[in-house]
Each structure stands twice: as structure tokens, then as C-alpha cells.
Amino acid sequence: MDKRIATLAEAVSGIPDGASVMIGGFGGSGAPIELIHALIDRFLETGSPKALTVINNNAGNGHVGIAALIEQGMVARMVCSFPRSADPRVFTERYQSGEIELELVPQGTLAERIRAGGAGIPAFYTPTSYGTDLAKGKPVEEFDGRPYVQERWLKADFALIKAEKGDPYGNLTYRMAARNFSPLMATAAARTVAQVSHLVAAGDIDPEAVVTPGIFVDGVVEVADPQQEEELNRAGAHHP
């Protein structure tokens, strides 16, 4: 078995117009910048993919990563918990002009919906959002005398994530708080591609240390010394 992919261009080649794409990261921590920029480069060359639904905790910062994806007009819909950042102007302008639809989901509910999607659980009940505007229209049921809101699973066509180490079987480890949503997204997408900072041989990751088992991963592409979104933004970077 060999899930290695040689190039970033190849790693994002199968994503069509209208696809739903989960993108790992919490702010800049864990954002797969090179995969996102490869997707943008493909769009600039071929005009595709566009009309994407993007699922991430945030909605981009500055002019790199998800913000750059939005800036190119590739995103029709965002599913996120917190579409604000140090520099949220790219999303804000398109949201206010009606170019982008927003589905706002509480952060823990977003995580659990993705987890449920990957675990084959179509719906679940949570105390989060009960009695608030974000529970409107959702079924409510009492369990042991307390009210809970029904939420549905969230799945996607693709997941693009960033990991620290990966092997040809797709086993992954992560770096510090950059883990965040990525292990969940890997389970919930029909096809998951990870950019890994260190591509290692099978057996080089201690099985005890594997965070995402390779069964959830379809492709790994090595990006040594990856760019970090926060650092790019502090340097005022734009893509392209």
C-alpha cells in the first residue's frame, strides 16, 4: 500500500466545482496552507474548482489560505463557528454583499457533527444552543429532565488537512494545537488528503503514537518546512 502523492497539484486535482471541502486548522494553527494555495493555483489556471462549500472553524484571515480562496471567488458557502479574525475583511465583504452564504455552528457542535459524520451517527442531541437563535427550527427533546437540541452529522466530499508526520499507509501525527479539527475531518470526508511535514517510512511512526490511523486517509503529500498562516499574515503576505 502506498498513499504517497508526488505533487501538491496532483493532491488537489480531483476536487470538482461545487464540492464540499473540510479544511483543517483553528485560525492559523494547523491550516494546510500549501494544499489551499495549490487549489487556488489550479483555479487560476483552469477556472475550477469554484462554488465550493468550505467547512472550517473560521472564515480566513488576511489574504492567504482560506481568505485567499474566498478572495478568488471560489467559495459559495462557509460552514464555521467564528468568521472573525485579526483581518476578516475578505469574508466580511463577500458575506455582506450576499456572495457567500454562512452557516454558523457552535464550535463544539461543529466538532461533534464532523465526528458523527465520520462515525456513521446521523444525528445526536446536545445541550449546546438550547433556547438560543441557533437552535431555531431544530427538534428538542428532554433526557433526564433536561432539554437537548438535535443536530445532524456533517460530511464532506474532501478533507484537506495538515499533519506533522505521515507514512505511506496514511498514518498521521500532529504538531501541538495544530491537531484541532483535522483528526475528525479525516474521518468525515469521502477523500482525505494530508500534507505532512515529514514523510516517513512505514514503521517509523510508533503505532502507540498514531493519532489518525491510515484507514481515514487517502493521500499524503510531503511539504517540508510548511508555511504557517499566522506568520504569513504578520508578514503581510498575499496569495497569489
Binding site: 463557528s81 468568521p83 472573525r84 476578516p88 458575506y95 454562512l102 454558523l104 457552535p106 463544539g108 457542535t109
Partner: peptide, 10 residues
Amino acid sequence: GVPAVGGAMD
């Protein structure tokens, strides 16, 4: 403005 909830409701 743009609605944003983060983890507040959780």
C-alpha cells in the same frame, strides 16, 4: 455585522 459564536454556547 457578521455573526460569530465560537465556543461560547458550548
